[in-house]
Design a protein around this nucleic acid. Structure first.
Lengths: 193, 193
DNA sequence: GCATTCTGTCAATTTTTCTTATCATCTGGC
DNA sequence: GCCAGATGATAAGAAAAATTGACAGAATGC
């Protein structure tokens, strides 16, 4: 009679230490910092993280309260399947073409509500005379160079530091009319890519 | 070192002791029985259940392994919201009509995949000349008396101890053609009631 | 450079958990 | 009734965890 589904912890080596360390670092806390918040000594945190002791429930509870995190969350936290957070440049797929390079951030994530792009427009680069229109919203910031952005009949030249945001159903177009590369970071939701 | 005159864990939100006791009793185990399976002493189980100690993770893990139950399940288990298990006769709603009484088991449960019915057919009771058809499957056992069951053009007379099971889209009809009451316990999925 | 402050680790001591061995109580069999 | 075998609780000692206080290395500021 097993009323509840069993999860990975059943067979896994219960690495409480690594688990705690991961949680602590996830929250950007040092052993002492966490110890102070939790009302325990840093030595204890150290010992637990090294698996040199098996903390009592009450101790682990106190430690987690310093995060704060519930015991249930601690034990159900699945470190193995944690979603990717960092996407090194080299790993960003380039979905651009011609004089435009589009580096998609988080493309490997199954469910996401946005597409983050690192865009590079070479001199003369153009998204096309045929204006773009699609569902959702998009926005971004020009990081380097200049870009000419046309949205809904209005055209502006944006330079480093300028930003934009509009409903994507408005016809829009990006053009680099300068002689330098232009670099933009953008986001669109829902993700078109 | 003060005498343990109060509950050590009184500030904790999770009553580990009561939780363990509930789990143990859920599985019908005595302290000694569980201790034997878990490879610990019955004394420890006793102390933990009285909250006179806060077990180490490793100890609690060992104890739960004897159930067996995963740590995550232990901490996730919600005793407060445990679904109703026993439905006294007096509490069973009668959704029948005329010469048929239908006592629904578990009607108060929000999400269920079946409808369990305790059915009573008085002499002459009939679900109707118009055959029943609906989605899902159903089955049951005749507990007392006799019932004439027609399914998909085939008719049989079932008496105490006989069972039935069929896809509910087949036209079916229940009739008590005897001079005694007939009593049936049935189940249908998905629940029509 | 130097001092300061942070980091994590560690040995020794204190505190708590866990085992051992026992107790009283309850239950079913005869 | 009385015994046999089970139950959960408990005291004391053994074992493990938690604190204390110190250490060395790394990062930060002057």
């Amino acid at each position: 009679m097993r009323p509840i589904a069993f999860n990975i912890l059943d067979t896994m080596t219960l690495d409480v230490g690594a688990h705690l360390r991961a949680v602590r670092q996830m929250y950007g806390l040092s052993q002492r910092e966490l110890a102070k918040r939790a009302g325990v000594t840093n030595g204890l945190i150290s010992l637990i993280e090294q698996n040199r002791v098996s903390p009592s429930i009450s101790s682990l509870k106190r430690v987690l309260d310093g995060v704060p995190m519930a015991l249930a969350d601690f034990f159900t936290l699945d470190l193995a399947h944690k979603p990717q957070v960092f996407f090194p440049k080299a790993e960003l797929p380039d979905i651009g073409a011609g004089r435009v390079a589009l580096h998609l951030v988080g493309g490997s994530l199954a469910k996401r509500s946005m597409a983050i792009l690192h865009e590079f427009y070479a001199p003369g680069a153009d998204t096309g005379e045929e204006m773009l229109t699609h569902a959702g919203e998009e926005g971004g910031v020009v990081v380097r160079g200049r870009i000419e952005l046309s949205v809904g009949g209005e055209t502006r030249s944006l330079s480093a530091g300028d930003g934009y945001y509009f409903r994507s159903n408005l016809p829009h177009r990006f053009r680099n009319v300068s002689r330098e590369d232009c670099e933009i970071v953008s986001a669109s939701a829902p993700p078109t890519f």
